[in-house]
């Protein structure tokens, strides 16, 4: 099983190449019986256009290692931003995307008004648009470094 997770670790989000699908939290179930591997995946946002691409990448990564993958898209365990691992959040920040705040704090969307700038760590920031270049990103402005930045949206 560890070997399979290791293979899945190599498959990255096509729009955030530093983040593996495992760390993104979209792989919700993995089971293996001999060479047959069953994987359940779920989209970050229902309308995510990268879902089919990511599914094909998972299939191809497993096939290359000699497995017979059965990959299913499922909403049984819906994605939320809390499923991003600590490692994944660190990778996002390093990539220049503010990681989503902990959902425990996220009872109201007012939490969106500011976030920590991934470049200078300032909290003197402002939400400019809850919608960004992809469905999972919002646009902020940092008054300290005077630059716009993006956040991976909490959900």
């Amino acid at each position: 099983m560890n070997k399979i997770l290791h293979i899945l670790e190599t498959v990255k989000d096509p729009e955030i190449p530093v983040l593996s699908l495992v760390d993104l939290g979209v792989i919700t179930h993995v089971a293996a019986e001999g060479k047959i591997v069953t994987v359940k995946m779920t989209p970050t946002f229902v309308g995510c256009p990268a879902m089919d691409y990511m599914k094909a990448e998972v299939e191809s990564a497993l096939q290359q290692e000699g497995y017979e993958p059965h990959v299913e898209i499922s909403f049984e365990k819906p994605w939320s931003s809390d499923l991003i691992s600590e490692k994944g959040k660190a990778a996002l920040k390093k990539y220049g995307l503010a990681p989503p705040p902990d959902k425990k704090l996220f009872t109201d969307l007012e939490i969106l008004e500011t976030t920590t700038c991934p470049r200078c760590n300032s909290n003197h920031t402002e939400l400019k648009n809850p919608f960004g270049p992809t469905l999972c990103r919002a646009i902020y402005y940092c008054y300290t470094c005077k630059e716009a930045f993006e956040q991976f949206k909490p959900l």
Partner: peptide, 17 residues
């Protein structure tokens, strides 16, 4: 520009849903 992006994103969400 922000509204252009917002309506386009909501379009993508709704068509995906």
């Amino acid at each position: 520009l922000e509204e252009d992006i917002a309506f386009s994103s909501m379009a993508q969400d709704k068509v995906g849903q």
